[in-house]
Design a protein around this nucleic acid. Structure first.
Length: 470
RNA sequence: GCGGUCAUAGCUCAAUGGUAGAGCACCGGGUUGUGGUCCCGGCCACACGGGUUCAAUUCCCGUUGAUCGCCCCA
């Protein structure tokens, strides 16, 4: 026997009535959006994300490590505006680059200025160097920065439209040791976080030699046009330097016979590069020579490099953690003193955090010392003051004033893995006492509420000294 | 900007052409004020829009988003 299941669905007439009602609602309550059948939930912009509390330990770990490391290498913090004049980046990053051609957020502000959400920070740093006459400071001027940057790119793992960069910049010295120091500092920064890296490095010489090489390379590839893949045919027209990056099998033979950029370097650049490598050898920092490495920003010259995580599973990492190089023409290009050299690196923080997670690196967690549990309003009132006493004496304390039952509060305390919970009820308030519960053993003692901070201080010290021994 | 894959609770995953289940998480309870285990209950979802159909979470199309590759980069 087949029993058709009854499906309730409004009839035409009913449907019309519903529509009518909804229209009426709109008219009567014009300021309030009424939830209808399709709930409208606010959505994030594509490529943007929230960094939630549970991810913050990774970020704190990075921030703390980066700050102390940068400063121990003599870099000083600079904060740069998020919005800059569009022109700044078109001139420096390069009009033809993908970053400027398709990835920048630009708009006109109310005053009619063409502004841009910064796609990177090196240009801003150079601008600041000029604006504030930093050429009068002892050179090199070494700066570090951290903050959000924006590129309107297609989002992917480790690639967002708003992402955070950390960077080091050194202006005013063309010594190869500066290039090396920046690479070394970056290496040790990531190492301190538990990420082993290797640096792919190359030299692209001066703009002139680079151009000459590019022409030569294109000429070579043009003679082999029928042996290369479709992608490469496109690259040949658009960005010949990228030809050397091709992974297609049919292109490998052609690639091997291609001219090498190192052969086209001028003597000074070649020398400079050799000395950078010598310094890296001396520092014991691993690197791989990568004659195919080119960078997409116009301002680079001589040394260019990328930082890659070394992973056990071979080449799983798709993205470099960071990159950088020398930009000797940048300051002058922006109208600063002729011949002011510079060199820097930038790390993509989302990528660093991603690497930490993949490598299962545990960031240090800030431990809570004491949980304060309360029962009833009088206990809460006293609790507020006790909480403040603890906070001011540097003991980290957590509470759950919003909770009523002791059971729930102890559950919270348990999840936080605190060593001690303080329990304050009606009775204790009247007696001027407070219960101290050892969460591991469950042992409790009743102590004088007036001395609670000193008592807990002692107990915590004992625990800490035991931890250090064990 | 181009191509492939995908979209079910806060998370991880089921099932189904007849409007959906679990585990974890969250909230509450297992008699008076005691956690880590256990038991009970509650909350919460078919991304959005359209089409085919008596009926769509399921099939088709579009949108949005994620993901992988290209491009590029951090």
């Amino acid at each position: 026997m087949i029993i058709p299941k009854k499906v309730s669905r409004p009839t035409k007439a009913e449907e019309e009535k519903i529509l009518e009602l909804e229209e009426a609602k709109k008219k009567f309550v014009p300021t309030v959006a009424l939830p209808t059948k399709g709930k409208k939930i606010p959505e994030l912009l594509r490529g943007f994300r929230d960094i939630l509390p549970d991810e913050q330990p990774y970020w704190d770990f990075f921030r703390d490590t980066a700050r102390s490391l940068a400063e121990s290498y003599g870099f000083e913090r600079i904060e740069l505006p998020i919005l800059e004049k569009e022109e700044l980046f078109i001139r420096t990053v390069g009009k033809q680059t993908d970053i400027v051609e398709k990835e920048i957020y630009t708009f006109e502000d109310k005053g009619g200025d063409k502004v841009i959400l910064r796609p990177e920070m090196t240009a801003s740093a150079a601008r600041a160097y000029i604006n504030h006459g930093m050429l009068n400071l002892p050179q090199p001027v070494k700066l570090w920065y951290m903050g959000p940057t924006f590129r309107y790119d297609r989002p992917q793992a480790g690639r967002y439209r708003q992402f955070n960069q950390f960077g080091l910049e050194a202006f005013g010295s063309n010594e190869p040791i500066i290039d090396a120091q920046i690479i070394v500092a970056t290496f040790y920064l990531l190492k301190s976080l538990g990420i082993e890296t290797t640096t792919r490095i190359n030299s692209i010489g001066t703009p002139d030699s680079r151009l000459a090489y590019k022409t030569e390379l294109a000429a070579y590839y043009r003679t082999k046009k029928n042996q290369i893949c479709e992608d490469c045919k496109r690259r040949l027209l658009k960005n010949p330097l990228r030809l050397l990056d091709c992974k297609a099998e049919e292109c490998q033979v052609v690639k091997e016979g291609a001219p090498q950029i190192l052969d086209w370097l001028d003597e000074d650049s070649k020398n400079h590069f050799m000395r950078v490598l010598e310094f890296l050898d001396e520092a014991g920092v691993p690197y791989t020579l990568d004659p195919h490495l080119v960078r997409g920003l116009d301002y680079y010259n001589r040394t260019v490099f990328e930082i890659w995580a070394v992973s056990d599973e071979g080449e799983r990492a798709q993205n470099a953690l960071g990159g950088g190089g020398r930009y000797d023409g940048l300051v002058e290009l922006l109208g600063g003193r002729e011949g002011t050299p510079g060199c820097g690196v930038a790390l993509g923080l989302e990528r660093v955090v991603m690497a930490m997670k993949e490598l299962k690196i545990q960031p240090p967690v800030k431990k809570i010392d004491v949980f304060f549990a309360q029962l009833g309003d009088s206990a809460r009132r006293v609790g507020l003051r006790i909480f403040e006493d603890f906070r001011q004496s540097g003991i980290s304390v957590r509470e759950a004033f919003g909770k009523g039952s002791l059971k729930t509060q102890l559950e919270n305390a348990n999840k936080l893995e605190v060593p001690f919970t303080l329990i304050l009820g009606q009775k204790e308030v009247l007696d001027g006492t407070i219960i101290v519960r050892d969460m591991e053993s469950g042992a409790q003692e009743i102590v004088d509420a007036g001395k609670i901070v000193q008592i807990m201080k002692k107990k915590l010290e004992i625990i800490k000294s035991l931890d250090n021994k064990g």
